[in-house]
Amino acid sequence: MEEEKKTYSRRSFLKVTSISGGGMLIGFSWMANLMPNIALSKEHPTKDWIKLTGFIEINALNEIKLYSPNPEIGTNVMTSLPMLIAEELDIEWETVIVEQGNYDTPRFKSQFTGGSMAINMAWIPLRTAGATARQMLMQAAANQWNVPLKELTTTKGAVYHSATSRSLSYGALAAAASILPIPDKVPIKQNTEFSLIGTHQKNVVGKKIVTGKPLYTLDYQEEGMLIAMAIHPPAFGMQLKSFNAADALKMPGIKDIFDIKVY
């Protein structure tokens, strides 16, 4: 185990400048997401999911839900990002439930996919999130068994104390773990210790895709929602001078026609 001594434990500002020459500046703190939240049951009244960091939820049945913070644009980050968390958390990938995080920047911070940045930016923060949750689960077990943390090990979603042949599933420990203080320094694995990272795993939404179930932006519908269509100039660099919408406005269903200033 390698002690992660960087300043990721509670706050981290990763600044990325000049992406694609656009002068984009992204500053964010992933680790602000590591706050325990035992009030989560309000969001899930039927399943008592306990939040361990902003990315992990565990219930008493030992079901583990991982949130993929970044949008999926076809690079399979919805599969690879949760793998980073699962690696450090020591859980069985086959049992993981992956959910796409909503647009919720206070919770997920960086919600940007592009420029080959997603894994790059998530590499340490998401692994630290997994490792932090794991350590809190181990601490909860250590407290319950009254044994030192260093005598505990984890595998496949459970904490073990081999000296006394005891074990508890993460699901049994999650509630106690969620109210513990967040540890400052959390060890993360060395690359040679990986068992999940570096393996091929199938697209987590593959089955939904082949049955036509995933919903994309264009599938979003809300009561009273209108559809806008943009008409672009016929060539790049052209500017709109004027337009006559009189005839178009007579067409059924047309509510309005207006120009918008882009850049």
Binding site: I73, G74, N76, N203, G206, K208
Partner: peptide, 14 residues
């Protein structure tokens, strides 16, 4: 499709 993990974003796969 599932066996060979064909889909990526999935939009065109239908």
């Amino acid at each position: 499709w599932l066996e060979l993990d064909v889909a990526q974003c999935g939009y065109c796969q239908t």
